[in-house]
Design a binder for these strands. Structure first.
Lengths: 239, 239
DNA sequence: TCAAAAGTGTTATGATTACACCCATGA
DNA sequence: TCATGGGTGTAATCATAACACTTTTGA
């Protein structure tokens, strides 16, 4: 199957051979105002015109599926250092009405501060939705989203991936609210502080919050180097 | 793409349309003599003749990928009530040397007591290997196996799936040894007993072990009904 | 009577929870 | 001075780990 692509270098349309009957769909998570959000795109053509769905695309014959997912994300958001992980393949025979197509689901965690919708996508094409205010999604994208949320909940408790949704520098309260939102629980502030600080995973900065109308909180950042060293010593992140 | 299949009803060869460039490969786990094992098949033809790999197959155009995996397992082992779960899709462009093929990995947990290699598969075609005595596997099957083990370790701590590898009736020591083998840890017998019994997940039988040269242990069985009821009450299995 | 595993009891330690309380800061 | 969140302290409770010990059974 031959599809058109925009070449990254020249900006021209080029033709590439892509895998037949296999697509990629990606749940892109963001976090803002204490709420978890998902980036949806509106289909501009075809039978589902006007409806919202997950951003997706084809896999080139010469690239790995992970690369295809990265490329897709970059084409859409202009960001390249995102956390990206495969969910699984979704393949009910009737999931796509026109043909038998299997899709491979991914989920991404992005820092919304870095995010920019790329030229070519306008506000009416793509926008963020709070996860409890999602519209109906096309095909089986609702199922894919549901699975991605389950996976995110699991992952966030077993590996320090939540930071990918926060700004570079964050307060402990922001971190706690992220966990509360993702896991859908209420947490105790003092206990959360101690639990997280005891892991010695966070690097405390000599810097405080600015522009808040209350005592400014200390800022922290997650340092992958520290995590790596702790892991080598047998540390196992668990929340 | 048209491939031959053995029809379940008539036993005759029939032709079915299958998905192109997508396969299924399955890691089948068994447990015997305190050891975790995997069922491998020897390729009888093609470029990898004589080498060992995971059992795999094609997906019919009309069936879901889960159904395809179930069918594959039944064709190979004659068992139909196995625990089966998708891992993810594996799709490095060079994973299969002759063509670009993406495979969807599955893993299954079977009770070896129920297991029987189906006619057509002889001992030289298919056999069990202890997981630390695996031969080199074809293509990326080694990677798929490694991922499946990671997944199994994860799963067995978060859901009561280990029972699928044990006989219907088992002792607490057998269960403990299963956990020791899967998680690759040493456990304390008294503590393991208490921890598991406290969950009230197991149904104690009025029956004891037979033919052992020491005090016979009480037999237990896992009751999915009990688990369901506990879950509804908010219970969350965790080991 | 001995080995091997079944099964019970006990204690120390550490994690988790719940909640009271003081501190700093801008409106 | 008040509201808002930052941040510390503490006691009760619960889970886990370590290990000593008694019991049962066939060889």
């Amino acid at each position: 199957m031959i599809k058109d692509f925009i070449d990254e270098e020249s900006g021209e349309k080029v033709k590439h051979a892509v895998m037949n009957a296999i697509t990629i769909d990606c749940v892109i998570f963001g976090f803002e105002g204490g709420k978890l959000e998902v980036l949806l795109v509106q289909h501009g053509q075809g039978i589902s015109k006007g409806e919202w769905g997950l951003p997706g695309g084809w896999i080139k014959k010469t690239e790995s599926i992970d690369s295809a997912a990265h490329r897709l994300l970059q084409e859409l958001t202009d960001i390249d250092d995102v956390y990206l992980e495969q969910l699984k393949a979704f393949g009910r025979p009737d999931r796509y009405p026109l043909d038998r197509v299997i899709t491979i689901g991914y989920y991404a965690l992005v820092k919304k501060e870095d995010y920019n919708v790329k030229a070519g996508f306008t506000a009416s094409d793509a926008r963020w939705y709070k996860i409890n205010e999602l519209p109906d999604l096309i095909y089986d994208h609702g199922e894919i989203f549901k699975f991605s949320l389950k996976q995110l909940r699991q992952k966030v408790r077993q590996a320090p991936v939540g930071f990918n949704l926060l700004p570079e520098k964050f307060t402990l309260l922001q971190l706690m609210q992220l966990y509360e939102e993702i896991l859908n629980v209420e947490l105790d502030k003092p206990n959360f502080r101690r639990k997280f600080l005891k892991m010695k995973l966070l690097k405390g900065l000599d810097e405080k919050q600015k522009g808040v109308s209350h005592r400014a909180a200390k800022l922290y950042k997650f340092d992958p180097e520290i995590y790596k060293k702790l892991t080598e010593k047998g540390f196992n992140f668990e929340f």
